[in-house]
Simulated scan of single mutants.
Amino acid sequence: MNTIAIFSDVHGNLPALETVLADIRNRNINQLYCLGDLIDFAPWHNEVIRTIRDLGIPCLMGNHDERIAFNLDITPLLKHNPTEAAARNAAINYSKQSIAPDCKEYLSQLPEHLRLTISQSGKETDILLVHGSTRSNNEYIYEEHDIDDIRKMLNDSQADMVIMGHTHKSYIRTVPATADSKGGMAINCGSVGRSREGQPLASYLILEIDEEGIRPEIIQIPYPVTAVIEAIRKSDIPDFYAEFLMQTI
């Protein structure tokens, strides 16, 4: 049996990343992929980037990575109230000011998507890895997203399975076949460093592959969240992000 680990949205949270990588090693998984957003909201963005880079983990360019790599303007999000909007601006500007040159260069070279082809029992399964969606690294695809649109994304990208991050909420969703579509799966692996699922857990995905098929499983594990809270409070990152984590404890 072969097993693949896929994770996303570390957001500068080195203790969470180290916990996930240790769990992956303990499971003897040696094929890893990251869906991006290595940066912003916790103070270890350079350390996170260098860890991913030095381990040679294939990684996508998340929307936060793209903004820092190319010094893009901060686009307001309608879902944020004024307090969160101000905190977000301050956190991103902190990243822009403190990103190391080698880390910024690394982010600028990341691809937008990766494609895997899994062969078992004479059957090939095409898996597309993206950050946000097949169309954009800034598009949110939640579990309740319109099924016909997900089916269109699968068909347009000629994929049997699309695996995403970006929303910080994990799910595994089967897309039924229709007369015009073979269907497939849409999976969100959740967030390593800034989960929005209400618990102080780091989330990632494993795919177990054998002659019977591919079995996805969401893994959620605790990490030293209080140490992250303390580090944020001691940094120039707004305390808003420490309070966000406090609410999950």
Rank of each mutant, 00 (worst) to 15 (best):
P15T: 09
H64K: 10
F41C: 00
H168M: 03
I74C: 02
I4N: 01
V192Q: 11
L35Y: 14
P111T: 00
S136G: 04
A91C: 06
K79R: 13
D54R: 10
E105W: 07
V20P: 11
L72K: 15
H113R: 14
S195C: 11
L110D: 07
I99T: 10
Q247R: 15
T125A: 00
L77N: 10
I214D: 03
Q247H: 14
T51F: 01
E18L: 15
N2C: 05
N63C: 08
T134G: 13
L201R: 11
N188G: 10
L116I: 03
T248D: 15
H64G: 07
L17D: 02
E18F: 06
I4D: 11
I163N: 09
E47S: 02
C34M: 00
C189I: 05
T83Y: 15
K234C: 12
G36C: 07
P58F: 02
E84A: 07
F70K: 05
S235A: 12
H80D: 15
E217G: 02
I127Y: 00
L154T: 02
E197F: 10
I29Q: 11
P76T: 09
D65R: 01
D146C: 12
E230K: 11
A242Y: 12
D65A: 00
N89L: 03
A100P: 08
D37H: 03
Y33R: 09
M161F: 01
